[in-house]
Nucleic acid binder design. Structure first.
Length: 547
RNA sequence: GCGCCUGUAGCUCAGCGGAUAGAGCACUGGUCUUCGGAACCAGGUGUCGGGGGUUCGAAUCCCUCCAGGCGCGCCA
């Protein structure tokens, strides 16, 4: 990446200036090269001189000049300028820009891929909604975030595995089984009461009826067996919803396997051995306060039943110690914030560096219809499912909406507004650019134009060069997104790339009587298609050849 | 009470300690006999929630206050 090359050269030039005694030999700050927001300031800029000014006790303008005078000539860069109060600005040559077109064509579908992950194994766990009901919009957001992040990390050179943690044990499942059993009995005409805090949703009635028709009275006295069947139904439904969003998991990990396969017992033994388990008031506690957490946590209840936390500790030990992932990333809703510190403490207690686990806390999605708020709880039953929202608003519009906002920002999903705006959704703007290019390439094919010998040095208008400038940003966007675990940069970048293309399109005729120019622009357009397709694919969205 | 997140244009949101704080939507005007008008070009709006502080420089970092969301279970 040219950005890193420039940063390195700034550092070399600064050292050179120091060795020539032009500036004092102070420690150099970490060099970063940025993109100025004002294009008049060039393509890249360094603030090295400004940062050095204090320690060097010199005017930053003088420092900048000293650094610039120590620069070796850089291929591809012209006009290294010093601008008040001390910026060093770089401008890429038109020629260098043009040469990026064949580079992109050569990279093809892998354009933008990086090697910063060095093949490290990363597991990313997301959605993991309880299989006690259908997915809601919040789960949709998590699904898109996790999926895009997985794509980004894979593009950045990590070996990524996507996992769904299935909570198929514990008290919620018991409640689910009892609720379903009641609906099942009711469907069979029995007059039974529905559990007070059971899952009251309409879908439970439907599944109860289905099971009653299929199995008759087979499970009259077996709520947990019935529940197990119902749970698989729910999982199938979840899988379908996720597939509709384009999200497919590599593995589905069952909480129950933690008990069946002795993983729970293993970590309990480990924690005891390390001295982090204490018995108090008939329960077993993890003494996380000794590891800096603000409170101790129960591992095994007075009833002898392990807590969710105990299972979660075992699950994460399995990820990081047994299955050997270098890193684990969890995407959790803000309502799970309270788990983070104790899980990290547990990892520390088990001898695992907790920095290998990143927990992304995603702020919740609140659903509104106009001014009216809609609750999302499965317990209360009155939910609007992800499926309904996708049908109402459209999958790609939803995807783009979910991805455009950072995980930190809380989302008001107004169904009225979303529907109203779906036709104006920026996602179509981006996809349209791709489809337009596909259409141009079709035309070229119809006319039997072979542009493999196109001469990119003919690309000279500002619109053409600006389009290339946008394209070379993709690797930087991927790097930043991977580094910060922030997929939301992609939709913004996608819009800018599409905008650069649309502007180019109105100014420059691609297929024309001028054959050499036609061929050069076909190359440019083909490269743009690669960039747009890659960006859309990273976001997990459809890449239409026509719309 | 304590902790985490958020507060930026009318609305929805970007903004990696740097240059004149940006985009989409909405609004107004213009562009088209041509490769897809789901397009392009132009117009303008900001106490960056308030107040202090650090810095050559703060929307960005620190403190404090205000407002909203979430969390602080032998629930998951």
């Amino acid at each position: 990446m040219i950005k890193h090359e420039l940063a390195k050269l700034v550092e070399i030039a600064a050292r050179e200036a120091q060795s020539k005694d032009l500036i004092p030999p102070t420690a150099l700050p970490e060099v970063s090269v940025e993109r100025p927001q004002n294009p008049e300031h060039g393509d890249y800029a360094s603030t090295m001189a400004l940062k050095l000014a204090r320690a060097a006790r010199m005017n930053p303008m003088v420092i900048a000049s000293a650094i610039v005078s120590s620069f070796p000539p850089i291929p591809g860069v012209e006009d290294i300028t010093v601008v008040a109060p001390g910026f060093i600005n770089f401008r890429l040559t038109d020629n260098w820009l043009r040469e990026q077109v064949p580079v992109i064509l050569g990279a093809g579908a892998s354009y933008g891929s990086l090697d910063i992950g060095k093949g490290q194994r990363v597991q990313i766990e997301f959605v993991s909604a309880n299989p006690t009901g259908p997915l809601h919009v919040g789960n949709g957001r998590g699904a898109m975030l996790g999926n895009a992040l997985a794509n980004i990390l894979a593009a950045a050179g990590y070996s990524v595995e996507k996992e769904y943690y299935v909570n198929d044990a514990g008290s919620q499942i018991e409640v689910f089984s009892n609720s379903l059993h009641a609906r099942y009995l009711q469907a069979l005409g029995k007059d039974v009461a529905f559990p007070e805090s059971g899952y009251g949703g309409q879908y439970m009635i439907e599944v109860g009826q289905e099971l009653a028709t299929e199995y008759g009275e087979k499970y009259l006295d077996q709520p947990s067996q019935l529940g197990a069947i119902g749970l698989e139904r729910m999982l199938d439904m979840i899988r379908v919803d996720l597939a509709n969003l384009g999200v497919v998991f590599d593995s589905w990990f069952r909480e129950s396997s933690i008990y069946k396969e002795g993983k729970y017992q293993a970590i309990m033994d480990l924690l005891k051995e390390k001295g982090y388990v204490a018995e108090r008031e008939g329960a077993l506690w993890f003494t996380s306060t000794s590891l800096g957490d603000d409170k101790d946590n129960v591992l095994v209840r007075t009833t002898g039943v392990p807590t969710y936390f105990a299972a979660d500790a075992a699950y994460h030990y399995d990820k990081l110690a047994e299955r050997g992932f270098d890193r684990a990333i969890n995407i959790w809703g803000a309502d799970h914030l309270g788990h983070v510190s104790r899980l990290k403490a547990a990892l520390t207690g088990m001898g695992i560096d907790h920095q290998r686990l990143n927990v992304i806390i995603m702020q919740l999605v609140t659903l509104k219809r106009g001014a009216e708020a809609v609750r999302l709880s499965k317990r209360t039953g009155d939910i609007i499912t992800l499926r309904e929202v996708l049908e109402e608003v459209g999958a790609d519009a939803c995807r783009f909406f979910f991805l455009s906002r950072s995980a930190d920002s809380q989302m008001d999903f107004d169904l009225e507004l979303a529907k109203q705006q779906s036709n104006e959704n920026p996602v179509y703007y981006v996809q349209y650019a791709h489809a337009r290019i596909a259409s141009i390439l079709d035309l070229a094919k119809d006319r039997d134009i072979d542009f493999s010998d196109g001469d990119v040095s003919l690309l000279a208008t500002e619109a053409e060069l600006e389009l290339i400038r946008q394209m070379i940003l993709l690797p930087e966007v991927i790097e930043m997104s991977a580094h910060n675990l922030e997929p939301h940069h992609l939709p913004h970048y996608a819009q800018e790339l599409a905008a650069a293309f649309h502007s180019f399109y109105t100014v420059c005729r691609v297929v024309s009587e001028d054959i050499p120019m036609t061929k050069a622009r076909l190359k440019l357009v083909q490269a743009t298609k690669i960039g747009l397709a890659r960006t859309l694919a990273l976001m997990g969205m459809t890449v239409p050849e026509s719309m």
